[in-house]
Amino acid sequence: MRPVGLYVERRSPLHALDPISKLVYAVCLALVPFVAGDLRVAFVVIVGNVVLLAIGRVLREGLIALAGVGFFLVTLFVVQGMVYPGNVTPLVRIGPLVLYLEGLAYALWLTARFVNLTLSAFVLLFTTRPADLVEELVQAGLPPRVGYVLLSVLQIIPSMAARISVIQDAQRSRGMETEGPVWVRVRALLPVLGPLVISSLVAMQERALALEVRGFGAPGPRTSYRLPWRHRLAWPARLAAVSALLLALIWRLAR
């Protein structure tokens, strides 16, 4: 059963840092280029994110995931290079196509912000178990019921995926073909979705019942089995992230 999310199991200083600090970091640093409004700042933050991914020993995974959206970025350069409203200076001519300097510069600016946002998120997502993040948020004041819903979704999605494969097996053993052309695969959907939906509804009722007898509906304050995640660099890291955002604002105002 593969868990939901991008988390990569490694040992690194970044993995050891508490999830909330990484969340604060990801939000602040993703915003820095937008607030600063300067391409140079965006590049500095991108370099910073790349260094952090390397410290977290997930740089390779991060770059591979980024390459996945490479096609979208290339299209962005072509489209903006051709049709950006402020285009005046032709730069490259490929047959009938002309790419303009202004359009390409704008695409670069969009791309820098997008890449930075993605890498900032990767710093959090590649080094933090989603469930750990939710747990910490609950301990920090998120209502436990909201936390439960988030956590159960994280757990139940992979278990449903496992169940789909069991149901597929059960139907294949009754002679249902699932391999071959698209129409064969589409036709095989209903016999899989039917049992999946119905058994999920039944499981939901049983789980609701089980939660009831485990005191989920009990009034009064809840406690937590987990110790809060403590890290000596938690507050310095959060402070640094917020400071970076403030500096970006000052940079913007000072220009």
Binding site: S152, A210, R214, G215, R222, S224, R226
Partner: peptide, 20 residues
């Protein structure tokens, strides 16, 4: 279906009711 569906380890699962 008796699992809480929201705990990552066996010991946390056992603790779920007590937390509530």
């Amino acid at each position: 279906t008796q699992l809480s569906g929201a705990r990552l380890t066996v010991e946390e699962e056992v603790a779920f009711g007590l937390e509530n």
